[in-house]
Write a protein that binds this DNA or RNA. Structure first.
Length: 742
DNA sequence: GTTCTGTGTCATCCC
DNA sequence: TAGGGATGACACAGA
C-alpha cells in the first residue's frame, strides 16, 4: 500500500510538474477529488490529512475557496493570510518553526489578469484539456474568468450539470436540482463529485452512441457551466467573482495597479475579511495587553547587542534555550518596550517619547522597509509607542537612522548581563570559580545544579550523611537520648539477664560500657571491630567502642586478631582487654563495683537506685558509680550533640544547594522569557513593517511613515491615519495617565 | 614532630 | 532540688 501510494504520488507529482513546465495548469486537487476518490485516499490519505498541505488546505476552506492556488493573486492573498495568521498568533507566542512551502510555479503565457484564471489549466480527467494545451488562448476568452472560478465552484460541487446536447432540459433541470439540494444539505464535494461522476458515466454510457464529440461538447459546456455560481436556495446562477475575503484582501493590500481603498479602513478589510470584528478586536487587545506588559523589564538600550547577536550568541549557547520556548502569557511584561528589531528597521520618532500605553485606540505606525525616514514612522500614539518605553524612544529623528536606543536591546542586555554577572554573582555569594562555572554549565546541561561539595562538610560519606539524617529526627528531642538509653539498657542487658552473675565474671570482664554510635549506625555492636569501617569517619579512630557489648559478646569482640591468637598468650589477651576498657571501666574494676558500667549508665533512675540499694557500697564506690553514670550520660549526650551539629551542617548545606538550584532555575527561566519576549517583539515589528510597507496611496506609492501611522481602532479595525492625528491622540492618551496620577 | 580528627570529659545552663 | 539533656571547651589518642 505504501509503495503504491509512493508510486502514485511521485508519479503524479512528476507528471504534474512536467505539465506545469510545459504550460499546462494541472489541478491535482480536482483530479484527485473528482475522478478517483479512492486514489486520492491512497495518495493523500484520509481527508484529515488532506488539509495539511497549504495548497489543498486553502481550497478546502472557505477562505481559500474561489482562488486558484497558482493564481497570481495568491501572492497577495497568501501574504495577507500569513500576516493575519501571524497577528493572530501574537497573543499565543510561538517561535516560528521551519516551514517549507513548495509551489508549482506556472506562468500564464499571455499574462492573464490577476484574479482571473486562464483556461490553460485542465483537470486531468478531462481529456478536453489536451485541446486547451494546444491553444489555451484560442479558447473562449470571454469565459476565462468564469472558468477560473468555475474550478473553484467545482471544488464545492456547485458545478452546473454538463450540458449535453442529448440531454433533455428536464434531465438538466433534475440534475441541477439534485446538485442544489446536495449543496444546500452540505454534501461534501467528494461525495458529490463521485456520485456525479458515476452519474456522468451512466449518462455517458447511455449517450455513447452519440459519439465522443458530444461528450467533449458536454465537457466543454460543463466547463462553461462551472463558471456560474449557483445559489443553493434559489438556484440562481451568477458569475463567480472574487470571494468576499479575497476582495477584501485585495482591497486591503492594493496592488500597484489598483487604487487603494480609503485610508480610514485601509487595513480593515485585511483584518476583518475572514475574522469577525469581535474576534479580531479581542486578538488585538490581547496583543496590546502583551505589548503593554512589555513596558517593564527594559532598563537599558543595546539594540546592537540584541539584534546583531549571532545565532551562537551567549544566550543561546550558554543557556541552551529551546528555540520554540513558549512564553508564559501570565508573565508580567510591564515596562518592557519594543526596540528596533533589526539593524535595518529602527523606526523611532521623537514623538514617541513619553508615549502612553493606549488601549483600543492605539495607533500602529510602522514604516515600510523601503522608507528612508524610518525613524519618523513611529508616532507617539502608535503601536510602536506601545512597544517602546518613552524614555527610550525620544532621541530619534527622521534621518538619524538606526542609532536609536533599542529597548529590546535593553532586554537582551539585561539577559546578557544576567548571564555575565552570573559568575560574579556566584563568586560574590561564596561560590568558588569552579562552582560558578558549574552554575554556568547548568544553563547548558539543564540537569540541575551540581555543586562541588567535596570541599564542604557534606563531603562526608553518604553513609555518614544518611545516618546523621536518620538520627536527626531521633535526636531532635530529649526522647532521642532516652530512647537510646532504653535501647542501650536492653542491649546492655544482653548477657545480664540475671543479677546472679558472679562479680568475678563482671570484674574479670570489666564494666561494659555502651556505644550508641555503633548501635545506631551499624547495629553491629558485636561484630568484629574491623566492620566499624562502615563509619568512615570512625574507621581511623582507635577508641574503645565496646561499651554496650555484653560480656559474652565482648569476649568474641575483644578477641585479638588471629595473629594475636596465634601468639596466644593469656597475658597478651589480658592486655588487649585492658586496652579495650575505658578508664571508668578500669576504675570500676579497681573499685570492685559489683555491676557493669552499662547498668550504671543506662538503668533508669529508679532501677539504678534499687540496684545500689541491693549492695553495700562504700562512699568511694558510690561516688565512682555516680561519676561513671554521669560521664556515661554526658558521653551519650555529647555524641548526640555532635550528631545534631553534623545534621545541622548537612541540612544547611542542602538548603544552600536547593536555593542555589532554585536561583539558577529562576535565572534560566528569566533568560528564556527575555528571549521569547525579544522574538515576539521582533515579530511584531516585522509585521508592522510588512503591513505598512504594503500600503499604497492612490498613486501606488508607499505611504511615508513620517506622515502616516497605523492605528488600532476600538472596533477592531486597523486604520491608517495621518501622523498629526496620531500625535494628537498620543498626547491625549498621555494626559490621561497623568490626570489619573493627580 | 605536627596537624587533623574523633572522642571523652568537664563545666555549665536549662528544663 | 535532683536528675538529666544540651553544649562549649578542653584534653587525649590515633592516623
Amino acid at each position: 500500500m505504501l509503495s503504491l501510494k509512493k508510486y502514485l504520488t511521485e508519479g503524479l507529482l512528476q507528471f504534474t510538474i512536467l505539465l506545469s513546465l510545459i504550460g499546462v495548469r494541472v489541478d491535482v486537487d480536482t483530479y484527485l477529488t473528482s475522478q478517483l476518490p479512492p486514489l486520492r485516499e491512497i495518495i493523500l490519505g484520509p481527508s484529515s490529512a488532506y488539509t495539511q498541505t497549504q495548497f489543498h488546505n486553502l481550497r478546502n476552506t472557505l477562505d481559500g475557496y474561489g482562488i486558484h492556488p497558482k493564481s497570481i493573486d495568491l501572492d497577495n492573498y497568501f501574504t495577507a493570510r500569513r500576516l493575519l495568521s501571524q497577528v493572530r498568533a501574537l497573543d499565543r507566542f510561538q517561535v516560528p518553526t521551519t516551514e517549507v512551502n513548495a509551489w508549482l510555479v506556472h506562468r500564464d503565457p499571455e499574462g492573464s489578469v490577476s484574479g482571473s484564471q486562464p483556461n490553460s489549466g485542465l483537470a486531468l480527467e478531462s481529456s478536453s484539456g489536451l485541446q486547451d494545451v494546444t491553444g489555451p488562448d484560442n479558447g473562449v476568452r470571454e469565459s476565462e474568468t468564469e472558468q477560473g472560478f468555475g474550478e473553484d465552484l467545482e471544488d464545492l460541487g456547485a458545478v452546473a450539470p454538463p450540458v449535453s446536447g442529448d440531454l433533455t432540459k428536464e434531465d438538466i433541470d433534475l440534475i441541477d436540482i439534485l446538485w442544489r439540494q446536495d449543496i444546500d444539505l452540505g454534501a461534501g464535494r467528494e461525495v458529490f463529485d463521485y456520485s456525479h461522476r458515476q452519474k456522468e458515466q451512466d449518462v455517458e454510457k447511455e449517450l455513447r452512441d452519440g459519439g465522443e464529440q458530444d461528450t467533449w461538447a458536454g465537457e466543454g459546456a460543463e466547463a462553461l457551466a462551472r463558471n456560474l455560481l449557483v445559489d443553493g436556495e434559489t438556484g440562481e446562477s451568477f458569475p463567480a467573482q472574487f470571494p468576499a475575503d479575497i476582495s477584501s484582501i485585495t482591497e486591503a493590500v492594493p496592488s500597484e495597479s489598483e487604487p487603494p481603498a480609503l485610508q480610514n479602513n485601509l487595513l480593515s478589510p485585511l483584518l476583518t475579511g475572514t475574522e469577525s470584528p469581535f474576534d479580531l478586536e479581542q486578538q488585538w487587545q490581547d496583543l496590546m495587553s502583551i505589548m503593554e506588559m512589555q513596558a517593564m523589564e527594559v532598563n537599558t538600550s543595546a539594540s546592537e547587542i540584541l539584534y546583531s547577536a549571532p545565532p551562537g550568541d551567549p544566550l543561546s549557547t550558554n543557556y541552551s534555550l529551546a528555540p520554540n520556548t513558549p512564553i508564559n502569557q501570565n508573565v508580567s511584561l510591564h515596562q518592557a518596550s519594543l526596540g528596533g528589531c533589526s539593524q535595518d528597521f529602527l523606526l523611532f520618532s521623537p514623538e514617541v517619547e513619553s508615549l502612553p500605553v493606549a488601549s483600543s485606540s492605539t495607533l500602529l505606525p510602522l514604516a515600510p522597509s523601503n522608507s528612508t525616514s524610518l525613524n519618523s514612522t513611529f508616532g507617539s500614539t502608535n503601536l510602536t509607542g506601545l512597544f517602546f518605553p518613552p524614555q527610550l524612544n525620544g532621541t530619534a529623528n527622521d534621518t538619524a537612522g538606526p542609532e536609536l536606543p533599542d529597548p529590546l536591546g535593553g532586554l537582551l542586555d539585561e539577559a546578557m548581563l544576567d548571564e555575565i554577572s552570573l559568575m560574579d554573582l556566584a563568586i560574590e555569594e561564596g561560590f568558588n570559580p569552579v562552582q560558578a562555572s558549574q552554575l554556568e554549565e547548568e544553563f547548558d546541561s539543564d540537569s540541575g545544579l551540581s555543586l562541588d561539595s567535596s570541599h564542604s562538610p557534606s563531603s562526608l560519606s553518604s553513609s555518614e550523611g544518611s545516618s546523621s539524617s536518620s538520627s536527626s529526627s531521633s535526636s531532635s528531642s530529649s526522647s532521642a537520648s532516652s530512647s537510646a538509653s532504653s535501647s542501650f539498657s536492653e542491649e546492655g542487658a544482653v548477657g545480664y539477664s540475671s543479677d546472679s552473675e558472679t562479680l568475678d565474671l563482671e570484674e574479670a570482664e570489666g564494666a561494659v560500657g555502651y556505644q550508641p554510635e555503633y548501635s545506631k549506625f551499624c547495629r553491629m555492636s558485636y561484630q568484629d571491630p574491623a566492620q566499624l569501617s562502615c563509619l568512615p569517619y570512625l574507621e581511623h579512630v582507635g577508641h574503645n567502642h565496646t561499651y554496650n557489648m555484653a560480656p559474652s559478646a565482648l569476649d568474641s569482640a575483644d578477641l585479638p586478631p588471629p595473629s594475636a591468637l596465634k601468639k596466644g598468650s593469656k597475658e597478651k589477651q589480658a592486655d588487649f582487654l585492658d586496652k579495650q576498657m575505658s578508664r571508668d571501666e578500669h576504675r570500676a574494676r579497681a573499685m570492685k563495683i559489683p555491676f557493669t558500667n552499662d547498668k550504671i549508665i543506662n538503668l533508669p533512675v529508679e532501677e539504678f537506685n534499687e540496684l545500689l540499694s541491693k549492695y553495700q557500697l562504700s562512699e568511694a564506690q558510690l561516688s565512682l558509680i555516680r561519676d561513671i553514670r554521669r560521664r556515661g550520660k554526658n558521653k551519650m549526650a555529647a555524641q548526640n550533640c555532635r550528631k545534631r551539629k553534623l545534621d545541622t551542617i548537612l541540612n544547611l548545606e542542602r538548603d544552600v544547594e536547593d536555593l542555589q538550584r532554585d536561583k539558577a532555575r529562576l535565572l534560566r527561566e528569566k533568560v528564556e522569557f527575555l528571549r521569547s519576549l525579544r522574538q515576539m517583539k521582533q515579530k511584531v515589528q516585522s509585521l508592522y513593517q510588512e503591513v505598512f510597507g504594503r500600503l499604497r496611496d492612490e498613486n501606488g506609492r508607499p505611504y511615508s511613515p513620517s506622515q502616516y501611522a497605523l492605528q488600532y481602532a476600538g472596533d477592531g479595525s486597523v486604520l491608517l491615519i495621518p501622523r498629526t492625528m496620531a500625535d494628537q491622540q498620543a498626547r491625549r492618551q498621555e494626559r490621561k495617565p497623568k490626570d489619573r496620577r493627580k
